[in-house]
């Protein structure tokens, strides 16, 4: 078990990818800890391993070595079904390319997060609608993703990530596909909602302005963290 105030803690995470020419070490004994309600941004050059780190922290990718604790539980020692269940309830994802289900409307996409946990109740519908209203999409709730702009899609994705009220949000370049102004709105929205709902946030971003808005910022360089 780890310290009680860490919602997520990684110790000595390493990852090496095999390439046709030579193995590339993306993470080298990386350590990271995140307190409850804390926001942390991770910056780094393209290919520095920021996204890989996010996937390792959520065990969408297995590390070569190291330890990982989710709310004190050693996630790497748990069965895959347990991790899948935790991903549905313990963490919410926001991706750069939104990844909305094209066959579902905005509100159905938000509710999908709840469906993966269990039966959808009336209060879940109300929460999904409230979240869409909160992100400014109350009148677009029944639109399918192809009818939404990039900014609107990302707002739906933010609402979806928050749907199950997970204590941890993992955001991978959430503004990467958006223009500057829309990106600022999305970031403001994400940070505000995380604070309102008392969620921890790990934000992977290139943008130093957005990074400064989080409680703490780390630079990923040559597979290791440096304080930014």
């Amino acid at each position: 078990m780890t310290e009680n105030n860490a919602i997520l803690e990684a110790r000595g995470l390493s990852k090496t990818f095999a390439t046709p020419t030579k193995p590339v070490q993306v993470l080298d004994e990386a350590n990271v800890a995140l307190a409850y309600g804390e926001s942390l941004s991770i910056r780094g050059e393209s290919g520095a391993g920021k996204t890989t780190l996010l996937y390792l922290l959520s065990v969408l990718e297995n590390p070569d070595s190291g330890e990982l604790f989710w709310a004190g539980e050693n996630a790497l020692m748990k069965p895959a079904d347990w991790r899948a269940r935790q991903r549905a309830t313990f963490m919410g994802f926001v991706f750069q390319a939104y990844y909305l289900m094209p066959e579902l409307s905005a509100v159905e996409n938000v509710l999908l997060a709840r469906r993966l946990v269990g039966k959808v109740r009336k209060e879940d519908r109300l929460r999904a609608e409230a979240l869409l209203e909160r992100v400014g999409l109350a009148d677009r709730a029944k639109q399918i993703p192809s009818k939404l702009s990039g900014g609107e899609k990302q707002r739906v994705a933010v609402a979806r990530a928050l749907m199950n009220q997970p204590p941890l949000i993992l955001a991978d370049e959430p503004t990467g596909n958006l223009d500057e102004r829309t990106g600022e709105h999305i970031m403001e929205l994400l940070l505000t909602l995380c604070r309102e709902e008392d969620m921890s946030l790990i934000l992977v971003t290139h943008n130093p302005v957005f990074a400064r808005q989080t409680d703490r910022c780390l630079m990923l360089h040559n597979g290791r963290f440096e304080n930014a």
């Binding site: 899948a84 994802f93 390319a97 990844y99 289900m101 993966l116 946990v117």
Partner: peptide
């Protein structure tokens, strides 16, 4: 493919 990855991330089992 990407939606399948997303569903994994959202807690879907194989």
């Amino acid at each position: 493919t990407r939606e399948i990855g997303l569903l994994h991330a959202m807690g879907g089992r194989t």
